[in-house]
Design a protein around this nucleic acid. Structure first.
Lengths: 134, 134, 134, 134
DNA sequence: TTTT
DNA sequence: TTTT
């Protein structure tokens, strides 16, 4: 009924832009989010959280999102499940993002604003295609 | 670096209170969160999101959380992975809650307040025990 | 750059639907949000937070939002300022909501769903009219 | 009943650390948060949002927070009111922060982590002193 | 495996 | 000015 996630972290790699059979743009990446405390053995730990973006926001992420650059993600948690090749049910948890902010864009200009950074809110109903098991 | 989740939904069953070997209380439940749009076939859909609570909050959830009752959950996303019996790496995504609100408590009194509802914020560093593969 | 607010509380009165000169629907109400701790003197306290909704969401709130009913609000903080009749600058802080959930709708049917509850996300850019000092 | 705010912006000036009569540390600053769209006249606009931090987090902000540096703030909205010298009721809206992240700390080391950055969550109940009209 |  |  309400489902909101906000993350700040760093993509583990550059994103890859794909298209669904019906031509909808989709970009997937994993965000490494440092935990606010150390593990038992004193190491810094992180959660590696899969993020999916659609349509205009997917294109923007393909253009601006870069491995290792600090990034803020807003969206909702989605839990999909499907049957794998061995007939077992597999659960996949992803963030479906509707807002992404590039906090360390290499394309920032001198006053700190991102150039050519379109309005990134994507409030239209989510396409059915997003449930495809990429 | 920042990791915040807010959900409103309904537990799919009553929670069960367990204790770690070191005696720390832990409660797990699944929250069914309706999606804000219908599926291709016109059905309402939901995400089924695992939630874990620890210590005092675990005890409170065991006492107040009930199957089907509207519930708000605040916390962070955690992604664990472990090797299963077949030697395969399995990823588990859960919400580690630090705040739970019982929006339809059956134990509310006539003026709408929850009785015996202690301060529910649990801001202390998370115990190492939480990484046990329950 | 990122501005997100999530509240659960109760409207202090029924909302009133107005229209801007250009015909845009706008609804304003105050949400009473109980604080999670008691005051020095042991009393429950609340924050009284002004909320503004626009367009379709304003119409939906006029239809469903009711005084005293538990309500969830998602949006962003906006700080306006204007000069009052004595020439003094006055600051007004409001939540511009883009999602409102009626958690205790009196119009719920027997299986708990809200009837005629349209998709409430309103992700379009905010109209200039919202800066009018209502 | 639930009250959560997450902001990313830039402090308009260096913070100043003060102490209440009872010796509790408090730091106040204003966060400039760019709006995601331009004004009617095509200008970028921002909301200027007052933020208050207490105790350990106040000390950390005094040490690390700097004017103009990108900063993430988590907390809750508080609406105070008091009578001013002319006997008029004045409303003050502030974010009481319980988590602050310095996204552009000048004290970051080469791998991007903040040095000497203590655990910043401050989950203890808020002190009565915070209601003093600073 | 699932809530209303 | 305030909700339960």
């Amino acid at each position: 009924m309400l489902n909101r996630v906000i993350l700040i972290g760093r993509p583990t790699r550059d994103p890859i832009l794909k298209y669904t059979p019906s031509g909808v743009a989709v970009t997937t990446f994993t965000l490494a989010v440092d935990r606010p405390f150390k593990s038992e053995s004193g190491e810094r730990e992180a959660d590696f959280i899969p993020v999916v973006t659609w349509r205009q926001l997917a294109e923007t992420c393909a253009n601006y999102l870069r491995k290792g650059r600090l990034t803020a993600v807003e969206g909702r948690i989605q839990v999909r499940n499907y049957e794998n090749s061995e007939g077992k049910r597999v659960y996949v948890t992803e963030i479906i993002a509707d807002n992404v902010r590039f906090l360390e864009s290499s394309k920032s200009n001198s006053n700190g604003h991102q150039k050519d950074d379109p309005f990134q809110d994507d409030g239209t109903p989510i396409d059915i295609d997003e449930n495809l098991p990429f």
